[in-house]
Amino acid sequence: MKAKKIVQSSEELDRRFDEGEDIHELIDMPRAKIIRHGKKVRITLDVAESLVNDIDVIREEMGVDRGALIKVWLYERVQQEKQ
């Protein structure tokens, strides 16, 4: 089996992952870094049950956790508002 080339940028890694490629062999694990974006803070939200049901339909189609989806949406919206 031919060895896979280690990725040179996060953009390349994202592209190859998005294309469905198994990326585990592409990562140089000894050099990999975990970036933590500050202290985590827990928040509690009261929302309508119908909204939660709508979110659950979307997350099930995507195959992701509800909390993870909401975090991504919040992040994307904050970035949009910053611009």
Score class of each variant (00 low, 15 high):
residue 1 M to W: 02
residue 2 K to W: 05
residue 3 A to S: 13
residue 5 K to H: 11
residue 5 K to C: 05
residue 6 I to P: 04
residue 8 Q to M: 09
residue 9 S to Q: 10
residue 10 S to W: 09
residue 11 E to M: 09
residue 12 E to N: 02
residue 13 L to D: 02
residue 13 L to T: 01
residue 13 L to P: 02
residue 14 D to K: 14
residue 14 D to W: 14
residue 14 D to Y: 14
residue 15 R to D: 14
residue 16 R to Q: 10
residue 17 F to P: 00
residue 17 F to E: 01
residue 18 D to Q: 14
residue 19 E to N: 10
residue 20 G to V: 02
residue 20 G to E: 08
residue 21 E to H: 06
residue 22 D to T: 05
residue 22 D to N: 15
residue 22 D to V: 06
residue 23 I to L: 03
residue 24 H to R: 15
residue 24 H to C: 02
residue 26 L to P: 06
residue 26 L to M: 14
residue 28 D to S: 09
residue 29 M to V: 13
residue 30 P to C: 06
residue 30 P to V: 04
residue 31 R to G: 09
residue 31 R to N: 15
residue 31 R to P: 01
residue 31 R to A: 14
residue 32 A to G: 09
residue 32 A to K: 15
residue 32 A to L: 14
residue 32 A to R: 15
residue 33 K to Y: 08
residue 33 K to C: 15
residue 34 I to S: 12
residue 34 I to L: 13
residue 35 I to G: 05
residue 36 R to C: 06
residue 36 R to I: 06
residue 36 R to Y: 00
residue 36 R to S: 12
residue 37 H to C: 10
residue 37 H to Y: 14
residue 37 H to T: 08
residue 39 K to T: 12
residue 41 V to C: 07
residue 42 R to H: 12
residue 44 T to E: 07
residue 45 L to P: 03
residue 46 D to A: 06
residue 47 V to Q: 05
residue 47 V to H: 05
residue 48 A to F: 03
residue 48 A to P: 04
residue 48 A to Q: 03
residue 52 V to M: 03
residue 52 V to K: 05
residue 52 V to G: 00
residue 54 D to Q: 11
residue 56 D to Q: 08
residue 58 I to D: 01
residue 58 I to S: 02
residue 61 E to S: 10
residue 61 E to A: 12
residue 61 E to C: 03
residue 62 M to Y: 13
residue 62 M to W: 11
residue 62 M to D: 09
residue 63 G to N: 08
residue 64 V to K: 04
residue 65 D to Y: 03
residue 65 D to R: 14
residue 65 D to Q: 12
residue 65 D to E: 14
residue 65 D to W: 01
residue 66 R to K: 11
residue 68 A to I: 01
residue 69 L to Q: 01
residue 69 L to E: 01
residue 69 L to T: 00
residue 71 K to G: 04
residue 71 K to P: 00
residue 72 V to T: 08
residue 72 V to E: 07
residue 74 L to I: 04
residue 74 L to A: 13
residue 74 L to N: 03
residue 75 Y to E: 15
residue 76 E to A: 15
residue 76 E to V: 10
residue 76 E to G: 11
residue 77 R to Y: 15
residue 78 V to C: 13
residue 80 Q to S: 13
residue 80 Q to T: 12
residue 80 Q to F: 15
residue 83 Q to N: 11
residue 83 Q to F: 11
residue 83 Q to T: 09
